[in-house]
Design a protein around this nucleic acid. Structure first.
Lengths: 191, 191
DNA sequence: CAGAGTTGGCTAATGCCATTAGCTTTTAGC
DNA sequence: GCTAAAAGCTAATGGCATTAGCCAACTCTG
């Protein structure tokens, strides 16, 4: 029995890729073991259990999303930054539906949890998007949550095939970006 | 062995209630059987299998949500209707997280599927909310999807404890409603 | 370059969960 | 009252996650 040369990172990466293929719900230890060329129990030498695997996939997904969004908004501000961030985020979710699904409902165990660290990084990019809009400090958290709601909502609905084919989904997404841009521009005067 | 007096509707109702208590992922046939006072295999006399149960719970949830939103917007228009619908929808998701989770990712099998019927009814209420806004027919589908994205996104994020406690979540929700209202008021001139 | 210890892989076993088969009793309709 | 469908039950099957315990293969030191 030659060694497979696995380590936690490679197992998690394979798990994320497999989740993207078969759906997060279809990700089983047996399938993942087969994918990495090992018997099921051997996976436990690298990850504690399936929940641990899910959390690591979630952290990976958040880190990758933060990278994608962060890179997309470089050099842009205002509406251009908003559109770039929104498109990058949605692209990521649509091309990596399984690993993004792993992030839903996970809660970091503490501030040093990789999930929290990556999540903060993603939030940082969202904050950068809002910088050019007339938003007071006190409203920043509300605006951040609004942005997250719209990014997360649209991406998960489309990923779950919740939209009929009555109109082009990409057009709807651009329309949504424009709607949010108008709303953010005309924030109320007082904080 | 006296009969328990079960029928599909009561099993589905109990399943929805149980899902709200233990989370959709924690809903098992064994737990549901115990809850309705029957052994596990007996459930199959009323529902085909767990997937069937999930779909029926989803249809129930969509119907209830449609009722709640429809009732909430009675007599309101414009921003008032938007706020009423948003609050009713979020209240429903937060008080019934398990059954709402059952709706995520389900796809109706055809136009007569109760899931499709209830979903259309909910969409009808959302359409009514948009009626007082200056939105062209061609844009209606985009606006509808935008509304769904906001409602679904915020409600699922809050339900999944994805918001930190840095600011009051109810305030954020009202802020989001105001943002969407501003965006919907100032739609571009051309359709 | 040998050998001790750690690491990573394997087989076997356990327990939970969904589902099916086949039997029995209740109950509704005649 | 009788018959047949409906609704319950026990027993059995198969999939999945997880643990125990064993052995081979690297690593690292002397």
């Amino acid at each position: 029995m030659p060694r497979a040369g696995l380590d936690p990172a490679s197992v998690v990466a394979a798990g994320a890729a497999l989740a993207d293929e078969v759906g997060f719900a279809g990700l089983t230890m047996g399938l993942l073991a087969e994918r990495v060329g090992v018997r099921t129990p051997s996976l436990y030498k690298h990850i504690a259990n399936q929940d641990d695997l899910n959390r690591r996939i979630a952290a990976l997904a958040l880190a990758e999303a933060a990278d994608a969004v962060g890179a997309a908004i470089q050099g842009y501000a205002g509406r251009d930054a908003l559109a770039a961030a929104a498109r990058a985020f949605r692209d990521f979710v649509l091309t990596h539906p399984g690993r993004y699904a792993a992030t839903i409902g996970v809660e970091p165990t503490g501030p040093d949890d990789p999930i929290a660290v990556a999540g903060e990084r993603l939030l940082g990019s969202f904050t950068a998007v809002l910088r050019a809009y007339p938003i007071g400090l006190e409203e920043m958290n509300h605006a951040l949550r609004a942005l997250r709601s719209f990014f997360h909502g649209f991406a998960t609905l489309q990923s779950g095939h919740a939209f009929q084919w009555s109109a082009d989904v990409d057009d709807s997404f651009e329309w949504l970006i424009a709607l949010v841009d108008r709303g953010l521009r005309s924030t109320p005067v007082a904080g």
